[in-house]
């Protein structure tokens, strides 16, 4: 069985269900929309700042403020792509057609990742330009040092969030359980741990806290992170790889 056949099949699968369209659309709308609103509000705030404070504003990162919400849609996308196989029972039909489970899983995740990346890339650039337009005279330019990296990194970040979610859904084999665990982690636990001084040292190694570093252009005044943009991104890659690896081991060894 050629891998190309399985990729082809997974592409048909992913584009023939509605959840793909609405989750990815929501990821785009949330990221761009919220980024635009927050950029508008930040413009007022920036105009009240003194010169010293203005050193530390990061217009690029500001325009990506909607990522926090947009990533939840990406999580739902990742969870549903894999989890729906289990919740519908399709997994048994799929594995009867493709009994080599590694080929099945990596084709599925591969196709979903490519699609997520394509959407995330468009989302990222639109988010940046819309946000900068809203920031008016405080805006950054795509040619400024580190900006292109941050915008591109924003797309990679969104993509890896989806990959991480796919890995978790493969481990847990249930979309409800996966969302029930991922949503609180990204929406509650990570922000809370990251917000408290005592726990920030641990929280900075969580996938989202480490991963968002890649969208930073200006290092904040009191930055304590022991890693740079790509270092933080590397931590996130490790998380996603770990989740997918564990998912693969579960799929390989358990009865379908």
């Amino acid at each position: 069985m050629a891998v190309a056949q399985v990729l082809n099949s997974e592409w048909t699968k992913i584009k023939s269900v509605r959840s793909t369209v609405w989750t990815l659309t929501m990821a785009f709308v949330f990221t761009v929309g919220l980024g635009f609103l927050i950029s508008l509000l930040s413009k007022d705030q920036f105009s009240k700042m003194n010169a010293r404070e203005l050193q530390f504003i990061d217009p690029t990162l500001t325009s990506f403020a909607g990522t926090g919400l947009g990533q939840l849609a990406m999580i739902v996308f990742g969870v549903l792509v894999v989890g729906n196989e289990y919740s519908t029972g399709m997994i048994r039909t799929s594995l009867a057609a493709v009994p080599r489970r590694g080929a099945f899983l990596f084709s599925k995740i591969g196709i979903a990742t490519l699609l997520a990346f394509a959407v995330a890339l468009v989302t990222s650039f639109v988010t940046f330009f819309v946000g900068q337009a809203a920031l008016g005279r405080f805006k950054a330019s795509i040619g400024d040092p580190g900006v292109l990296r941050a915008v591109f990194g924003g797309a990679l970040y969104m993509t890896l969030i989806a990959v991480f979610a796919m890995g978790v859904a493969t481990i847990l084999r249930s979309p409800m359980l996966s969302l029930g665990i991922l949503m609180p982690i990204f929406f509650l636990i990570a922000p809370i741990l990251g917000g408290v001084e005592a726990t920030r040292k641990i929280a900075q190694y969580l996938p989202d806290q480490a991963g968002t570093k890649v969208m930073q252009v200006v290092t904040p005044e009191n930055d304590v992170a022991p890693y740079g943009p790509w270092g933080g991104f590397g931590i996130m890659v490790a998380w996603a790889a770990l989740a997918v690896l564990c998912g693969w081991l579960v799929l390989k060894n358990r009865d379908a």
Binding site: V17, E85, T88, R92, A96
Partner: peptide, 12 residues
């Protein structure tokens, strides 16, 4: 094989 007719994604 037809093991379980419900083993499919109903949205497809």
């Amino acid at each position: 094989a037809l093991l379980d007719a419900k083993a499919l994604h109903g949205g497809r």
